Amino acid sequence: MRNKVIFFEVQGGNDKGEDGYRKDTMPMVNALKERGVEAEVIFYNKAREEEIYNYVSTNGIAYVSRINPGNLKEEECYFNMLRRLCDEGVIGMPHPDAMIGYGSKDVLVKLTSTTLVPDDTYAYYNMNEFKHQFPKSLAYGERVLKQNRGSTGEGIWRVQLVDSLNGEEEAPLDAHIKCTEAKDNHVEFWRLGEFINYCEQYIVGDNGMIVDMRFLPRIKEGEIRLFMLRDKPFYVVHKKPAETEDAFSATLFSGAEYRYDTPEQWSNLVQSFLNQLPEVRTLLGNYDLPLIWTADFILDTNEAGEDEYILGEMNCSCVGFTSQLELAHDVAEEIIAAIKEKTLTVS
């Protein structure tokens, strides 16, 4: 009888505590057990994949993926195993294709038909696309380039022309540009063509791509992260970049300051996002919403001079909440609710 909730982890990585688990995993396991639900952690290992698959497909009613993709070399093998489990009726939290859809940087391009993302946002999957479009994008103002891999701001660049173009519709490849990386807000000066070639490392390889969107100067006022449990906003993180001249990064590693607010303190943003959530879900494949996920927004000003919020990124692969471990009880309730909903739907 399937009755266990399986939490997938992977051994190693800098996100683990002294016991070898992520610090927010065992609180969720224990919260489920307190509610009479069997739960356990299994470490994914490619060499034991069939053994793991057979055990979970026989005993698991649902799985919760708690693996940071950066700590997993066999990501595609892992995703394929999760797909097989979902096909067998195990409830995916999240489904691997939802993980990819909500977690990849090109989620922004998929949502340009909404009011959440400007329509001059592009994704480049090969160098020809990048070389063709990016000089044109840059001619109209500062841009931000985001690689699909990495974390903590690595490979996220604010790019601006040093000299004006005098009305030209495409920046020449010998144009001088100023590039600031979000990892630590350091500045480098390049020729545009040389920088384009440098960025090839972000495009080549599995899941390589670059997203190109306009720079939003009001990032200085802070990035606003909605922490979501399925369709419920639980708290909001206001992440204000450091006060130095070129700083635009909202990561702790770059000196940003974090403040934790209630959803009620950002009611306009929260309600606007929830109103558009059904459309977002449809555009991203109509999978069940991830169990734990985030949406990051930056303030902008529309043509009427009013505030609007622009989506900058979403994440659902392995969102942590180690500074609010009491949320483990809320997560457990959402897991139980999701299982009940699925069970009723199937029956």
Rank of each mutant, 00 (worst) to 15 (best):
V117F: 01
C86N: 09
D87A: 14
M99W: 04
L116W: 00
G89F: 07
C86S: 08
K110I: 04
V107S: 12
V90M: 06
S104L: 13
Y102W: 13
I100V: 14
L116E: 00
D87F: 10
D106K: 15
S113G: 14
K110N: 11
G92E: 00
L116F: 01
G92H: 05
D97K: 08
L116K: 01
M93E: 13
D119K: 15
G101F: 06
S104N: 14
V107G: 04
C86L: 02
Y122V: 02
V109E: 14
T121G: 01
V109Q: 11
D87N: 12
D87Y: 14
C86K: 00
P118G: 06
V117R: 01
H95E: 04
T114V: 07
T112G: 07
G103V: 04
K105Q: 09
D119P: 03
Y122E: 13
D87G: 15
D87P: 00
Y122D: 13
M99I: 09
D87V: 01
V90K: 12
I91R: 00
G92Y: 06
K105G: 07
T121I: 01
D97Y: 03
K105V: 09
L108A: 05
K110V: 02
S113N: 10
A98I: 04
T112F: 10
T115M: 13
T121N: 00
P96H: 09
A98Q: 03
M99T: 06
D97V: 07
T121L: 02
S113L: 01
G103P: 08
D106H: 15
C86Q: 00
L108Y: 03
H95S: 08
T114L: 07
L111P: 11
H95F: 07
H95P: 06
S113Y: 04
P118C: 12
D119T: 15
V90W: 10
H95V: 11
P96T: 02
L111S: 12
P96Y: 07
T114M: 03
M93D: 05
A98S: 12
P96N: 03
Y122T: 03
G92S: 04
D97M: 14
Y122Q: 13
K110G: 07
P96D: 03
T121K: 01
D119A: 12
V109W: 05
D87S: 14
V109T: 15
C86P: 00
V90S: 11
P94K: 09
V117E: 05
L111I: 13
V117D: 04
P118V: 07
Y122L: 14
L108D: 03
K105W: 08
Y122N: 13
T121R: 00
L111K: 11
T112K: 15
V109Y: 10
M99A: 13
D120Q: 10
Y122C: 07
D87M: 11
S113E: 13
G101N: 15
G92L: 05
K105N: 04
P94N: 09
Y102S: 03
Y102A: 06
D106T: 10
L111H: 11
I100S: 10
A98W: 05
V109H: 07
S113D: 11
G103W: 09
A98C: 11
D106A: 12
P96G: 02
A98R: 04
G92T: 03
T112W: 09
K105S: 08
D106G: 09
V117Y: 02
A98D: 04
K110W: 09
G103A: 10
T112Y: 04
K105L: 13
V90C: 13
S104C: 13
L116A: 02
